[in-house]
């Protein structure tokens, strides 16, 4: 049974991964002070992970991934205000709703070239932005959605000012969803996605139902993005229109690109680098950050992404 062994080896956890997650989870207990930014990193990482499922594994370019992030954020906000204050229940409901939105809109990105997909996803996010803006009685419009009273986590842990509970909540959510995503990409379903991304015609010649797989992974990515949005809404008790803005879609794309696509850890590495650099560079003038980010992208695109990432990737699966 050579094949069985070899396939089992392919999915095994390596020690750098285990060390990483132990550290990330241990950081919940670290001395107060950095939890707020760690929370932001965890949320961005989850958002980038959701894009990796769509772009890195299924090859669908999106310039409007904030649509699902923002939808999840508003969903979680409204659920908290009008349905239940329990964060975990709210998170699950927001994910479910985002998945349904993903399911519906997946039909729009099935066909077409990269360019069409890029425009359609961009348009989707803009449409949602306009809707949120036009319904201030629900979303608070430009003032943002206020008055969320998020209940204690699991009925026991109140969200504190220093963000310890928030980080714990986000990192555990990220971990659980990561393990699930890891299982999914190592499954037969996951391999069929990898095949579709590389050559969808060839994949269908092996009997892979390409469209159904794309719909499924798009809905999954939408659910993950919705979860990230919901985490942001719940841990900050506030949702503003910028959850749907183009900059957020661009940022998450850049985050993923910095970390590398198609290996799940790309989003996490990218989120860490992105947030830490943003923190350092925008302490001077905010324009500095944008400028260096732009320069980095230009250089990265000119030099080629693969060359840079080949180095990092060898250590992880």
């Amino acid at each position: 049974m050579k094949a069985a062994d070899s396939l089992a080896r392919r999915a095994r956890w390596r020690w750098p991964e285990i060390v990483f997650w132990l550290l990330a989870l241990a950081a919940i207990a670290a001395p107060a002070g950095k939890h707020l930014i760690l929370n932001e990193i965890a949320i961005l990482a989850l958002f980038a992970l959701s894009l990796d499922l769509i772009l890195g594994y299924a090859g669908i370019i999106s310039l409007g991934h904030a649509a699902f992030f923002g939808f999840g954020a508003y969903a979680a906000g409204l659920i908290c205000k009008y349905a239940t204050a329990d964060p975990v229940l709210g998170l699950l409901l927001a994910m479910l709703l985002s998945a349904m939105l993903g399911l519906l809109t997946s039909l729009l990105v099935l066909r077409g070239s990269d360019l069409t997909r890029l425009m359609v996803t961009l348009g989707m996010a803009l449409v949602l932005h306009e809707i949120a803006n036009a319904l201030p009685q629900w979303t608070g419009g430009a003032d943002g959605l206020q008055g969320m009273a998020v209940g204690p986590l699991l009925g026991r842990f109140d969200f504190d000012l220093f963000g310890r509970t928030a980080y714990g909540y986000s990192i555990v959510t990220l971990f659980v969803l990561f393990v699930l995503a890891r299982r999914i990409v190592k499954s037969p379903f996951g391999v069929s996605l990898m095949a579709i991304r590389r050559n969808s015609l060839r994949a269908s010649a092996l009997g892979v139902p390409v469209n159904r797989r794309l719909i499924a992974v798009y809905a999954l990515g939408a659910a993950y993005a919705g979860a990230a949005g919901a985490l942001l809404a719940q841990t900050t008790a506030y949702v503003s229109l910028d959850v749907l803005e183009f900059n957020r879609s661009a940022d998450v794309l850049l985050t993923l690109i910095i970390g590398g696509t198609g290996w799940l850890y790309g989003g996490i590495v990218g989120a860490f680098v992105f947030k830490v650099l943003q923190d350092l560079l925008s302490s001077g003038a905010p324009q500095f950050w944008l400028f260096w980010l732009g320069l980095f992208l230009v250089v990265l695109a000119l030099v080629g992404r693969d060359r840079l990432h080949g180095l990092v990737r060898r250590a992880m699966p």
């Binding site: 370019i61 794309l253 400028f291 992208l297 992404r305």
Partner: peptide
Amino acid sequence: RSHLDQVLFSIGLVFMAVAA
């Protein structure tokens, strides 16, 4: 290059132009 690379490259240019 791929469309994704072109997107990244040109977004980078936009960011630099905006910031400058």
